[in-house]
């Protein structure tokens, strides 16, 4: 995405950028600063997402928060909902846990459990220790939703690190008996935002399009007829039917407790990847 912006000036009018990449793009002067006063639908945006620090560079806003989601836990119906990620290492889930095969997410869980900042844990050994303690429980490392659905419906595990959006789909499309649980440590969050490239030739039309994308009416139609991630627009979420799964899982209070994935410097990303690789080798040994 960044490469496309760099090499094709003037081609794109609106770009979708993950909040963890927004500052990088803005720092390279690829984006136009935005004024939310020009976006009539922005009034409904959840403040924690709308004003998120990752969307700002030098005090200016470069992205309109659009959709978001969480990585937290999923548990089979009929079992006690875990209060903490510590359940992943609890003896009652022996050989009954699936983890997400993703370095950033799993280091995040380890950081939560050792009381550290998920985006910049200083004590990686403590993270490793928390993750390695899950070994007797770990049955499976999943990397795709399809793999998760198959293994869960075959009863291979009851507790798992899972995506909120996938939890909606697993229940809605496959009637899998699960609950999505956000433990007390909060979820690992992601946020996608819409930005206008600095080189766009149609800045006004771009702004109108973004305003349409965060319009509750459009969102409700998208979410109910096709299925969509959670909207950053609280009003849009409130207009979903009361029993809508998407609305039920993406409760507004979770936005307050979740930690968004931050932009990671290269050396930290490498350290995360190496640590997760080491933990996986420990699970396998």
């Amino acid at each position: 995405m960044l490469t496309k912006l760099r090499t094709n000036p003037g081609v794109y009018d609106v770009v979708l950028i993950n909040s963890a990449r927004s500052q990088q793009a803005a720092g390279e002067d690829l984006l136009t600063p935005l004024d939310l006063a020009n976006y009539s639908n922005a009034s409904g945006l959840a403040p924690a997402l709308r004003d998120n620090a990752y969307l700002k560079t030098d005090g200016k806003l470069y992205g309109v928060s659009w959709v978001w989601g969480m990585n937290a836990l999923a548990i089979r119906d009929g079992m006690d909902k875990p209060e903490s990620y510590a359940a992943l290492a609890a003896p009652e889930y022996k050989n009954n846990v699936a983890l997400f095969d993703d370095a950033v997410t799993m280091i995040g869980v380890g950081a939560f459990l050792s009381g550290q900042d998920m985006n910049d844990p200083k004590d990686l050994d403590a993270v490793a220790e928390k993750l390695k303690a899950m070994k007797p429980n770990v049955k499976l490392l999943w990397s795709s939703e399809d793999q998760w659905n198959k293994a869960f419906s075959a009863g291979e595990f009851d507790l798992s690190v899972y995506w909120s959006g996938a939890a909606v789909r697993s229940q809605r499309k496959f009637q899998l008996p699960l609950h999505f649980v956000v433990p007390k440590e909060g979820a690992i969050g992601w946020l996608d935002s819409l930005s206008i490239p600095a080189t766009s030739q149609n800045q006004e039309a771009a702004a109108k399009f973004i305003n349409y994308m965060i319009d509750p009416k459009f969102y409700v139609e998208w979410a109910t007829k096709i299925g969509a991630p959670a909207s950053a627009n609280e009003k849009a979420m409130e207009e979903l039917p009361a029993d809508d799964l998407n609305r039920d899982i993406h409760k507004p209070e979770y936005i307050e407790t979740m930690t968004l994935m931050a932009p990671l410097p290269d050396d930290r990303r490498t350290a995360f990847n190496n640590l997760w690789q080491e933990v996986k080798a420990f699970y396998a040994a």
């Binding site: 049955k139 499976l140 990303r269 990847n273 396998a284």
Partner: peptide, 21 residues
């Protein structure tokens, strides 16, 4: 392999697909 499925192949693949290293 599930949990035990960590081999040089998967480690190398992870470096290309996940870790971008």
């Amino acid at each position: 392999g599930g949990r035990v499925g960590v081999t040089m192949g998967t480690v190398i693949e992870d470096q290309f697909t996940q870790a971008f290293n």
